[in-house]
Nucleic acid binder design. Structure first.
Lengths: 248, 248
DNA sequence: CCCCGAAATTGATGTGCGTCAAATATTACC
DNA sequence: GGTAATATTTGACGCACATCAATTTCGGGG
């Protein structure tokens, strides 16, 4: 079940979009085979970032959006009070930096949570290309629209749901995103620290920790450090979905 | 100071984008004079919706995005539990429906909060046009990106800030948006009910009410029903910005 | 102008989660 | 490989806000 794929046979990897197993996530349907070549021309592929390294930093001049090829990325905003607010986690096949496209500078920080391979899309050239390839333009509108809706969903989660519901929802989100990569959706390693989870979900670390142990005692998950196993997906879905559940 | 502009001299208004005083909000800089004609061709302008009327409904087939010309619009999502979650308020010059562009159907409901004039942008024809007008494409990328960032800001507000901070932030947001329309930024009429404010900010109605009276007792605002006057913008900014303020 | 339903306000009480504090486990670095 | 630094867990306690309940005010139609 939990087949782990070795994703970096060589660090100077220069595989093309054609070969990339994620191209149907990152560029689903939008791009004709023949157009893929044009896109490849402008993309810088597969640069490796090590854990903790910044892909870009808030207020730096905006140049590119980035696709995660392997690994995981955390985005965060430093508020005027100097506090960090985690705004998202990005997994392979997902695009980082779309929230900065209205700006001269990046609206957030993006940092590799583990060893991470990244493809870079310089926006200036990308916009030329999207203007010429209607399918690609449509795709980018879709990606951005999805990001908006995802953020609305997050707002709902934060404003209406309990700690347990938020954490169940995050675990299920990660589960489905791992599954999409043909990895196990029920046993995986969390790329982020408890602290990041807490920050992202608007909770205290202690609360996150307590909910994890509560879930574990209920037999819904098994967790040892960052390794988690979702033992009862149905129960998690119940928890995440239904604010007025009775059992448990 | 509080100059109120009569915005609907006639209900069958068919003014062009050229004349529209909001065109620099809804289409700032993006569009050349000469291109404006092309855009006008595809836009259906100035349809009037009366209070409570839906501009579009969740799950209906997605066709268009909409610009608010006058009045105010509320967007909301009906969750699987059947509860309403308000996702945004839209004022003149702002675009509604961008979160649905990844979908065959609308991702939310949009409802007029008062008598509201709306311009419709059919997306299919819009995408043709953006492909031909790079400036317009860029503009739409910007609009969507702004929406993403706004939603991130909202998430932060909801996850980290107290009831007072949230409400102060909303009042200031409305203030600046009124001011942008050359209306008073310090005395205006709230287009939405307390209930909508509460729902949007993830609070109980009672809490909203209590914060309003508390602000009033502190002399920060004056409020009688939906009429509000911001007496001390500085104080509001302090409240909204600084989670660790001491006074008050 | 009056009446009725909805919206807003105000008060009393309960609780989920934050905060503080301290112990334990894990990671990273020399 | 050992030790310091960091992350995670666990417990005790308090508070901001939700909830419940009861007026009061507002808004719109006859």
């Amino acid at each position: 079940m939990a087949q782990v794929i070795k994703l970096h046979p060589a660090s100077s990897l220069r595989a093309s979009c054609h070969q990339c197993s994620l191209s149907n996530l990152c560029l689903p349907l939008a791009v004709e085979e023949s157009d893929l070549d044009r896109l490849e021309d402008i993309i810088q592929q597969g640069r490796i970032f090590s854990r903790g390294e910044h892909i870009f930093q808030q207020n730096a001049p905006f140049r590119s959006v980035y696709a995660v090829r392997s690994g995981a990325v955390k985005t965060s905003i430093i508020t005027e009070n100097g506090e960090e607010q985690v705004t998202g986690f990005y997994m392979p096949g997902e695009l980082v930096g779309l929230d900065s496209m209205s700006n001269e500078t990046y609206a957030c920080n993006a940092k590799a949570l583990e060893r991470t391979s990244i493809c870079e899309f310089p926006v200036e050239r990308l916009e030329d290309l999207t203007a010429r390839l209607p399918g690609l333009q449509h795709h980018f509108f879709q990606l951005m629209s999805q990001e908006i809706r995802g953020s609305h969903q997050l707002s709902i989660l934060l404003s209406k749901n309990t700690a347990e519901e938020r954490i169940a929802a995050l675990l299920l989100s990660l589960s489905s995103r791992f599954q999409r990569r043909r990895m196990s959706g029920t046993a995986f390693s969390l790329p982020m620290a408890r602290n990041d989870i807490a920050n992202f979900l608007g909770l205290a670390v202690e609360t996150v920790s307590r909910v994890f142990t509560r879930f574990q005692n209920q037999g819904v998950i098994k967790a040892r450090g960052r390794e988690v196993e979702l033992m009862d997906l149905g129960a998690l879905q119940m928890i995440a979905r239904d604010p007025e559940r009775q059992s448990l």
